[in-house]
Design a protein around this nucleic acid. Structure first.
Lengths: 360, 360
DNA sequence: AATTGCATTGCAAAGCTTATCATTCACAGC
DNA sequence: GCTGTGAATGATAAGCTTTGCAATGCAATT
């Protein structure tokens, strides 16, 4: 606990300035803020500004806050992980949040949060948002129980679909959920490959528990089925959202007697690893193998060839999340806490895909 | 400007709770804070907590701050850039900040900030930290004028060395500066190469204006000089902290009649690009060329071979920054607002470097 | 000369929580 | 029965800025 007495001494308040210049605190207050500065006689204002500067005055933020009643701020909850911001998803979503909040004059807090089995999720949520007006949950995947606890939670809250358990429909939650249309994105990716003539298509997926990975998997499989291609289990590889998984997956595929001519990856980082593994084995992309990612973050253009990938509109997602919070905070009674629809994911065609050529 | 009225309406204060339960505000206040909760009779405390929950009560941060003199929160100012968090520096520093703050029970706000020529930096700083107790500036590089404006700034503030203009000594600023010992790091990198027998060493640097890039350059050059190797201008390449620069730099080197046998890069991302360019030209790393990075972030282990690099202790850096803020906020009078010394940067030897072999 | 209008300033209240001090009550010990 | 002790609670002031309203003084208008 900070020692309070130490603050007292140092503080040059508005009243000190006022008394030294024989004016009232009101005048000083008015002189110091641009919005009200015109109310003060110019020479007097000048004197006030000079003295304030000399005394290193800065207005007591607490007092100002108390008076103005402002609490235009929201909390974003992220997982506790050193490299969390390196992930495209978190990093881009978060900076989108910063933009969207700044555009509205809102402030963004960030809290880390590690779920622990015993804790009451709702209570934790409340304590993390103690002095903000709302929460965007971007954290670790929730359990079904966590989600149940949220029914009836009335403070402004938005959850990202990625954090939801896979089998819970986003619309029935009673809490707004924002997400990207993974299904359509994955369909577009696999669809492109089919359209380019590929029939031997491998999948490198993320963690089986991840809702994003699951939805993407589903999209890929649908397209294969529609194209009359039976999915081959040995061409489906699951791991984590990492380059290492991409490498391992591709290596596994290409050590089989017949390898895929194209690979769909569950994110760009996996695609990056796959690309790397292909090159290590002397396969050229896109000539010998087409590779397609998912995200369209920095990895996609850093690697060579630049990745064909699915663009996740994370900035838009963040914009929507912030807007929901602001809306809910401003009109606490307006009912409709609906799920909202997914944002579309668009394909971005670069250089890692090309028409199928029979392997030499 | 947020509309004030909308916030007022839904806010239930401590007194509302008190009057509904026929107790005094003091009791409610005590019941609601863990530190003082033991002073309240358990059943009463329970009732208070329940009502507070029901009314969606949250304590007015302004009032609390005014009373306490501090609120346990700090602002981190980052540049306005969509991919900002993808950068190893920002991302890792920021998550370090989150950790360090969380460990102290402090809250972290994030503000984006784009410098504009006309604005008064000091004033901007004050307005961005209006409702926090301190600022860690991690934003765009400052100008000399900005820095001058800061003299005598009395609220808790820490600046990262990377944001300082290159020619300003960190110690004379009157504001605490935290930074990494780029010089020693660069020396270690170049030193390793020299020790491995390399004499033809290329440098791929960051933007000439960047203080980090400048210091690293200086370290590299010193080592070369000490080893009796005259630096060759055609083996020094400047660009940005990006993979693209690494590619361009390495390509430029290897299109000359004599190419370097080893390359020092100003960060991992550049090294990554250089690695990629080398491979494209049929050169194997580390057999044909040694490459060394700087940062030891995710890039370093994502690429193949894993990078020998200089580890920046960004988590420690963040820890120090937070600690300085907390310290300054708690004891505003304790003078010494010194620069503090740089944190050491240690070399991490992986697989991208090996002893010099005469090119075939 | 009286009135009106405007610019400038001061007064006082409000905003909400918390720490200090005083008070009450119950119970134990004598 | 009285005193002392400790737990639980209440009353009150303090913390600093902002703003609505009133007051003052001066110049312009009628």
């Amino acid at each position: 606990m900070p020692d309070r007495s130490s603050f007292r001494t140092n503080r040059a308040g508005i009243v000190q300035i006022a008394s030294q210049l024989n004016v009232s605190a009101s005048t000083v207050s008015r002189a110091l803020r641009p919005e009200t500065a015109h109310l003060v006689r110019p020479d007097r204002r000048q004197a006030i500004l000079e003295l304030a500067e000399k005394l290193h005055f800065s207005p007591n933020p607490g007092a100002r806050m108390l008076r103005k009643g402002v609490n235009a701020s929201l909390t974003v909850i992220v997982p506790l992980d050193e490299n969390i911001f390196f992930s495209e998803f978190y990093g881009r979503f978060l900076s989108g949040t910063l933009h969207a909040a700044a555009a509205r004059g809102w402030d963004v807090h960030i809290s880390t949060f590690k779920r622990s089995p015993g804790s009451d999720f709702r209570q934790t949520l409340a304590s993390l948002s103690l002095n903000t007006s709302g929460v965007i949950y971007l954290g670790e995947p929730l359990t079904r129980e966590d989600v149940e606890k949220l029914r009836g939670y009335r403070r402004p809250l938005v959850i990202t679909k990625s954090a939801l358990p896979a089998h819970i429909p986003a619309t029935e939650l009673g809490v707004p959920v924002v997400g990207v249309d993974n299904l359509a994105g994955a369909r577009a990716a696999a669809g492109l490959l089919v359209q380019l003539g590929h029939r031997r298509i491998g999948l490198i997926l993320g963690p089986p528990a991840s809702r994003d990975a699951l939805e993407r998997r589903q999209g890929y499989l649908e397209v294969l089925e529609n194209a009359g291609v039976a999915p081959r289990p040995e061409w489906i590889f699951e791991g984590s959202f990492s380059a290492e998984t991409g490498r391992a997956g591709f290596t596994a595929f290409s050590s089989q007697e017949e390898r895929p001519t194209a690979v769909c990856c569950a994110n760009d980082e996996i695609a990056f690893g796959a690309l790397d593994a292909a090159r290590t084995r002397g396969l050229r992309c896109p000539d010998d193998v087409s590779i397609i990612g998912f995200d369209d973050g920095p990895w996609a253009t850093a690697c060579w060839p630049a990745l064909t990938t699915i663009r996740q509109p994370l900035a838009d997602l963040a914009e929507r999340a912030v807007s929901l919070i602001v809306e809910a905070a401003s009109h606490p009674l307006s009912g409709a806490r609906s799920g909202g629809s997914d944002l579309p994911a668009a394909i971005v065609i670069r250089n890692s895909t090309r028409t199928f050529h029979p392997p030499r």
